[in-house]
Design a protein around this nucleic acid. Structure first.
Length: 387
DNA sequence: AAGTCGGGGAG
DNA sequence: CTCCCAGACTT
């Protein structure tokens, strides 16, 4: 075995195969944070749970750059949890206006009152207690506990999900329940060890995961690609090893798009086929396409469509027979189009006196611009196939 | 499990 | 334009 490593390494996790976390994972992040992490954010270098809590709430689904000014204004006007609890709702909302997700501000106010009324004005340090407060979920509770008291409890935010997805090679949308459950399990295993330096380590580690995700393991261009030394986890990173940083984490699945269907007529006279020029506006504007018939029966009735196709073709000549020649699906950004092609062979054709209609030889497809699926369909006709 | 909340930045 | 951001809460 050419590759050797002191720490156990994970392999790719295409399914639920258990992943082993390198035993020094946590401490590597700790050391990296102390050397290369962020140390001058307004809510750092303090153990004031009020400021830490406030920053964590403001930072929920909100980037650091957007929060800084709001944070300064807020603590200047309401410097303590007691002051916040005593403030009016209007005053709180005014300080929050523009940050978005205003339920955060309402919960913030409620939480301040709860801390005053139920916890003697002192923030709990137990994550299990913190999560019972309004606006504080599992990850935020762990962050507050770690930063304010060095409690050993894992966070799992967008940064951590991205880092974990790449380092451990986890496929699947992290917003999905099963994926998130696996990541929480990994987050617990990845923590730096308990011990005498645990409190300081947890502060650096928690900050370090966020810093890694925000500055090195960035969404677009991870810094490890040009420079593996930029990331303390690069040596164990599955995504980096396998060239998957661009596809991990798996993006949110796109919303199901509606499906439409149409019937296209392939009217054939020898090797000629009848095309129609589409209006400039709308789908395939200005391109030459095949004539279409609306689909008015669900489920699709093949014989009825073939009969209708024969009737339709009568305007252009003497149709002999019509047959369903094939189906194909074309995907647009906003809908999926099921195309059924009915071939109609004509024994004789009448003169076409219409600028938007013309016959084209299958041997001359390059002469006109046609939509991609129509082009494929015509090329198949040219080969004499039925798709 | 899916929907909702929001403004801003990056690609 | 879409996707994402130190997510939590409701249905």
């Amino acid at each position: 075995m050419p590759r050797k490593s002191a720490a156990p390494l994970s392999s790719v996790s295409t399914d639920s195969a258990p992943i082993s976390v390198p035993t020094d994972f946590g401490m590597r992040v700790v050391r990296w944070q102390r050397q290369h992490g962020r140390h001058d954010l307004p809510w750092q270098n303090t153990r004031d749970a009020y400021r830490i809590w406030l920053s964590e709430i403001m930072l929920q689904q909100t980037q650091v750059a957007a929060v800084i000014e709001y944070f300064h204004r807020f603590v200047a006007q309401l410097p303590t949890v007691a002051a916040l609890a005593a403030a009016s709702a209007d005053e709180v909302m005014a300080l929050w206006a523009g940050l978005g997700y205003y339920s955060r501000a309402r919960n913030l106010h409620r939480c301040a009152k709860a801390v005053m009324d139920e916890h003697g004005g002192v923030f709990p340090t137990d994550p299990d207690v913190l999560v019972t407060l309004p606006g504080i979920g599992r990850s935020t509770a762990a962050a507050i506990a770690a930063f304010s008291a060095g409690v050993r409890s894992p966070i799992l935010d967008g940064n951590v999900k991205r880092v974990f997805a790449r380092v451990f090679g986890i496929e699947g949308y992290p917003g999905e329940r099963a994926i998130e459950t696996r990541m929480w399990r990994l987050a617990e295993q990845a923590l730096p060890p308990a011990g005498p330096t645990q409190a300081e380590d947890m502060i650096s580690y928690t900050q370090g995961l966020m810093d890694l995700g925000a500055t090195v393991c960035a969404r677009g261009k991870p810094a490890c690609l040009p420079d593996a030394a930029a990331c303390p986890l690069a040596a164990d990173c599955v995504a980096r090893r396998d060239g998957l940083t661009a596809v991990l984490p798996t993006p949110k699945p796109r919303a199901a798009i509606p499906e439409r269907s149409t019937v296209m007529l392939v009217m054939r006279h020898g090797r000629d086929v009848l095309l129609g020029l589409r209006p400039d506006s709308g789908i395939w504007g200005g391109l030459w396409s095949l004539p279409e018939m609306p689909v008015d029966t669900v489920p699709f009735d093949i014989e009825a469509a073939e009969d209708a196709a024969l009737e339709e073709a009568r305007a252009f000549g003497t149709p002999a027979r019509a047959t369903l020649a094939g189906e194909l699906t074309h995907v647009f950004t906003h809908f999926r189009l099921l195309i059924r092609a009915i071939r109609v062979d004509l024994d004789a054709v009448t003169h076409v006196d219409d600028a938007a209609r013309r016959w084209l030889s299958l041997d001359d497809l390059d002469a006109l611009g046609t939509p991609a699926p129509v082009r494929r369909l015509l090329e198949d006709q040219a080969r004499g196939g039925l798709f």
